[in-house]
């Protein structure tokens, strides 16, 4: 009975956002400071992974260069902040615009490819962006990146709020991430979302029925890119830095890992994957230095026994058990 109820609640498209907002607003009030900061990072990486999944889960396109866009967002933010720009709205608009421009050029060339070829092409472009960040020393600070000595307070009109306080930083990030997730949620439930899924299931049929696969994919690519850029902006503000590591392919592997961990077929899969990833990492590094070893060992059974990712598989079980009790 309980499963059934949860299953039904979960099927309402926007219930997830409400749960997210409630948890997001209250959890940080009751956890220790360090964990507030970890959860801040989870929010940012969760947004990054969810935007990646718009391509992966909904279009079937495995982007291995998503960190490139994340990095563009971070670098534009760092450049503007170091030039003394204090308005976060302006910074947000600028970094998303810059990311969209990059995503447009790269997407235009990538979206006609499928599967592994798309993955390798996006990897190539992502690494080109990495090389620019790493080698254009005059602008990007080269391998050192752009450290920010401080971040300006948020001007709310009636008062200025310093982001130095971990809780303030948290709510600042939460606001942007919530908006980002709302956009994604609306997109996947719209007519366009259906077209995306159609482009994944059957390219030819969509093409026959008059849909332009390439342009549908390009729009998805732009959205995923723009929101990755937003995540990058938040990451830059949170860590007070933009560094070339943020554009490297190993950084692109993170959203892939999180998404498959959580489940690519459900909207909240990547986010849950991000939570699991960070909590696991924290637990494992507490116990041993050989966290890669343990992470690998944990990952193997997850891949083998949770074919739809953890959230995906759990939801599936709930649904089928719910259906089972219907039958009885």
């Amino acid at each position: 009975m309980v499963h059934q109820k949860i299953g039904r609640i979960l099927e309402y498209p926007f219930s997830g956002l409400i749960v997210f907002l409630v948890l997001g607003l209250f959890v940080p009030l009751v956890i220790p400071t360090y964990w507030v900061m970890v959860v801040t990072e989870i929010l940012i990486m969760g947004l990054f992974a969810t935007s990646f999944n718009l391509l992966f889960g909904y279009c079937g396109l495995l982007s291995f260069g998503q960190a490139g866009f994340f990095g563009v967002g971070a670098y534009v933010t760092a450049l503007l902040l170091s030039k003394g720009v204090g308005s976060y709205i302006l910074i947000c608009i600028a970094s998303i615009t810059a990311t969209l421009i990059a995503a447009y050029f790269i997407g235009y060339l990538c979206v006609r490819r499928d599967e592994i070829f798309f993955a390798m092409l996006s990897l190539g472009f992502g690494m080109m962006l990495f090389t620019i960040a790493h080698n254009w020393r005059e602008v990007t600070g080269g391998s050192d990146g752009l450290p920010l000595s401080t971040v300006p307070p948020v001007d709310l009109g009636f008062s200025k709020i310093s982001l130095f306080h971990p809780l303030h930083g948290y709510y600042f990030v939460l606001a942007f991430v919530f908006v980002g997730l709302c956009i994604l949620q609306v997109v996947v439930h719209s007519h366009f979302g259906l077209m995306l899924k159609a482009s994944r299931e059957n390219k030819e049929r969509l093409a026959f029925s008059g849909g332009n696969v390439a342009s549908v994919r390009l729009v998805a690519f732009l959205m995923a890119g723009g929101l990755s850029g937003l995540a990058g902006m938040l990451f830059c503000i949170f860590n007070r830095m933009a560094t070339p590591d943020m554009l490297h392919w190993s950084f692109s592997a993170k959203p892939v890992l999180m998404t498959i961990l959580g489940g690519a077929e459900v909207f909240w899969g990547p986010f849950v994957g991000a939570v699991i990833f960070f909590v696991l990492e924290q637990l494992v590094t507490n116990i041993t230095e050989n966290w890669m070893f343990v992470l690998g060992l944990l990952l193997i059974p997850i891949v083998l026994f949770f074919p739809r990712g953890i959230l995906g598989t759990v939801l599936n079980l709930m649904k089928s058990s719910g259906r089972g009790s219907h039958g009885q």
Binding site: L62, L257, I260, N290, M292, G296, L299, I300, L304
Partner: peptide
């Protein structure tokens, strides 16, 4: 992608 992820896990284990 599952094969990629699985072999990625093997990579993590072997490297460490």
């Amino acid at each position: 992608t599952f094969q990629l992820l699985l072999t990625f896990a093997v990579l993590l284990v072997l490297d460490d």
